[in-house]
Design a protein around this nucleic acid. Structure first.
Lengths: 157, 157
DNA sequence: GTCGATGCAAACGTTTTGCACACTG
DNA sequence: CAGTGTGCAAAACGTTTGCATCGAC
């Protein structure tokens, strides 16, 4: 079996998600709709604060705590997930984008890693310790190709 | 090549480290010595606050900020490292203990994983993306054997 | 009208920092 | 005596929460 197990049914757009919110007893508020529009817009790995700024360009009074509360609710519904890419704030994206994260400790860049890359580790760890990894929630740190090249050059000097 | 590259020369005890501190222009203060004694004592994965409490059993006036400053300095000298095991505070241990970390998202337990377990992932990621992972700094999250068994039982019910 | 969602301010836990004083070498 | 380290208080940071009000249904 591969690393990933079950995939929450994936709503295709803002309206579908809002319908689901209502199903769950929630309300389709303006901040919720705008936040969802931003989440469905391109560009992944946004922090709560970045999302707040984007939402505030349209609705300046939306408060950061509202963003957090909505992200939490959307996460409970399986629509979004957050990932920790290293030190610093968590980043949020649609739950439909499933991939692992690699984060460069030198330059801070984040690479998305297909889950298949983690199968070897998943098998090794399951066999040795009975532990089932989830490579999506926390990034694996290290050093990206560019920084490795730069650091090697410096070491030569 | 395996996941790990270079190993900072490993001082065998408190006095060796303090000698190294002095070499680097630092001073061998009481709080520093006691902190080192606690770090060399058994039990890994201690948070700054836990270390502070242990140190304060011997020297009650040592302040948490002193612990942080000393840990930072010792980290610069390559004597200790910190690891993030999930949400919550970082944990510190001697740099000589090199292993990866697996952290259970259900029960919070931390498993130490021999670095060899990560070789498959390291090779896959290096080949695919030129990225060199360091599995020591951030834990890989997932679910431990006990929690998996418990969760499977609940799912059956 | 009910009850969930919001704005705001204030708290939270972890870590960092500014400053005056104390101690090491 | 020079300069590093310390205690303390306060700030910084990301995030959560209490509360009165607002708005969706």
């Amino acid at each position: 079996m591969s690393v990933e197990s079950r995939q929450s049914s994936a709503p295709a757009g803002v309206d579908e998600v809002l319908a689901r919110v209502r199903e769950a007893g929630g309300r389709a508020t303006t901040s919720r709709r705008i936040l969802l529009e931003r989440l469905f817009a391109e560009g992944s790995h946004k922090t709560a604060e970045e999302l707040a700024h984007e939402v505030q360009r349209v609705a300046p009074d939306v408060h950061l705590s509202t963003i957090y509360r909505n992200l939490e609710e959307l996460e409970r519904l399986g629509v979004v997930t957050h990932a920790h890419l290293g030190h610093g704030p968590a980043t949020y994206h649609l739950a439909t984008e499933t991939h692992g994260h690699l984060s460069c400790e030198s330059c801070g860049a984040t690479l998305e890693a297909p889950l298949g890359l983690f199968d070897g580790l998943a098998d090794a760890v399951r066999a040795a310790l009975g532990f089932e990894i989830d490579p999506r929630h926390f990034a694996v740190l290290g050093h990206c190709a560019a920084c490795r090249a730069r650091e090697a050059a410096v070491a030569d000097a």
